[in-house]
Design a protein around this nucleic acid. Structure first.
Lengths: 337, 337
DNA sequence: CTGTTAGCGCATTCAT
DNA sequence: ATGAATGCGCTAACAG
């Protein structure tokens, strides 16, 4: 049995237009027919075919979310915020993950084309070409934490620069001088900003050349472990390490623990993002709080607002402040030097 | 400018059928026209409208995933596994979250109807009515960790019973006698199985009535904290606590820490799931490892296999084994009683 | 108020 | 090898 509008109309003894009108409440329908239609709908188990609706109305009811990974806490939190907001507005979410790979990202973007009405993009390493492609598309796009090379999209950023600058300044104020930084991926926009924040603070403290204190890494526990080991071998050893993010910091904590080095007594460790895990690490992790869930929701709201607006809206560029959260993994420097 | 097949055909000076044939490689097309079509496609930036394709072919290319939450680590891991597998097969993922709410779940299920070609459901508290609805639908469904009340769907379960039974037996073997259990939600299928596993082990050790040791809770840190506090007030105090899952266990650890009670010296704590955080909790958490990412991928593979099979396939019922992972949060009982 | 009709964009016959 | 024509299920415009 076809679960189509025609079948419903047949059973109710009305035309398909009437069925549509009952379902969409677009025009009054006589109570009698209305009831018969509703019964038939129930009997058939009818649901309008979204493909047909979408073809006609040029709307899909879906919103796309583009992320490097869905499983990492940071992105999972973003997803949760987006999910909650989308549900509130009656949109469903289509998730695409790039796994930090350009080809996959491009495929995802192409594949999303007419499947969604709008797009949230949080891919720090997105390249200019893809960004331009998105900006040229018909669908509204909100970019989270991406470089500002186009003004054809909405942007929501958080203050990567200021976050690490504050963190560095805090460590300096606590007597640290040799503060190592594990940088995130070079092509990731946020990692660059964090690096600049670090340098700014260090220069403010009179350290103009930090090249010996900067280490290449990425946003993984594995990187924290490996690079942490390298940093330990330094002489003199840094008294503090600022990791690329919380995951990376947790890797650092892990290698320090294995080497029997006390945190924060012998060395301070800091992360970035303040993901839920940071509060449960051992020791609890000093970090920079990013209101990521809220940002995810804000991105969806922006998209929906734009979709509902019948007149063009100016594109916005919002920057969320971030907040230093001091926990057990950092302490004043006890270096006797 | 319309980005339709017609526009491409016009530019290439061919019929729309030819464009379709070039794009779908369904029938040979003369090299000359093929080239012109491809050029036109490029010039227009043409992508076939998925809604039109779906209307015609009765396939969407999407797979739905139904979860309580997207942000919790356990589900995020499931999602990652599903995502990887879906990407491999060229399907996209449509995520719906129920937030453990029946109404939301029902709305999600209805909304997914013709938007996807198949469905992965991991909602332990799903009710019989919704399950029946899903089973009756046209799309293949894989249920993860749900009760076995219908054989019209594929099922992938992991051994909740055996997991907690093993955990309990391990604690008993280490001299523990007063082992408290924080139960998960009563209407959650997995929580029931875990409870039964606990009781089985306790009875095996001669404790036939465990009612004084069972506590109502749920899968949250908050529950672990609150219920943990209640358990602490007991006299005599239990020497071990098995939490509903890892999140709950982390809440227990947190309240014990606040009360200055040493883990595992004074009391042992265990979780379930072995989410990534368990390895980074303080102390590291003894848990039951569930291969959740693999399960997520397996569910998608099952779905795709079924979709590609042109002949009906028998429904399967697979049970993944789970594994006890002993870490620092549990130790032999030092009770002098 | 209600029925009839015309497409939305595309893959697929059926002719040629 | 290719074009014309059909129709997937639905909403909206047009008649009554």
């Amino acid at each position: 049995m076809d679960r189509t509008i025609r079948e419903v109309a047949r059973r109710a003894g009305v035309s398909i237009a009437t069925v549509s009108r009952v379902l969409n409440k677009t025009v009054p329908v006589s109570e009698d027919k209305r009831k018969r239609v509703l019964e038939a709908v129930d009997a058939v188990g009818y649901t309008p075919n979204p493909a047909a609706q979408s073809l006609l109305k040029k709307e899909t009811g879906g919103l796309g979310v583009l992320l490097p990974y869905a499983g990492e806490e940071f992105f999972a939190e973003l997803l949760t915020g987006a999910d909650l907001a989308a549900q509130e507005y009656g949109y469903y979410l289509l998730i695409c993950t790039s796994h930090r790979d350009d080809k996959t990202l491009q495929a995802s973007i192409r594949g999303l084309d007419k499947r969604v009405d709008g797009l949230v993009v949080m891919v720090p390493e997105i390249n200019a070409k893809e960004l331009a492609y998105l900006a040229k598309g018909e669908d509204p796009v909100v970019c989270i934490n991406t470089p500002l090379s186009t003004d054809a999209v909405d942007r929501i950023n958080f203050d990567n620069f200021e976050g690490v600058r504050k963190m560095t300044a805090y460590l300096i104020a606590n007597g640290h001088e040799r503060i190592a930084l594990i940088r995130g991926p070079e092509r990731a926009h946020d990692a660059q900003k964090r690096l600049e924040g670090y340098r700014a603070a260090m220069q403010g403290a009179g350290v103009s050349d930090t090249s010996m204190l900067e280490f290449n890494g990425d946003y993984t526990k594995q990187a924290g472990y490996t690079v942490g080991e390298k940093i330990l071998a330094l002489d003199p050893r840094p008294t503090a390490i600022i990791a690329a993010n919380d995951y990376c910091a947790i890797g650092v904590l892990s290698v320090l623990h294995e080497h029997g080095i006390a945190v924060p007594e012998e060395i301070s460790v800091a992360g970035f993002d303040d993901v839920p895990s940071a509060q449960y690490a051992a020791p609890t992790l000093t970090s920079v709080r990013v209101p990521i869930r809220e940002i995810g929701a804000a991105a969806i709201r922006r998209l929906v607002t734009r979709l509902r607006a019948k007149h063009p809206m100016p594109h916005e560029d919002q920057v969320y402040p971030v907040e230093l959260v001091v926990r057990q993994s950092t302490a004043p420097c006890k270096d006797e030097a």
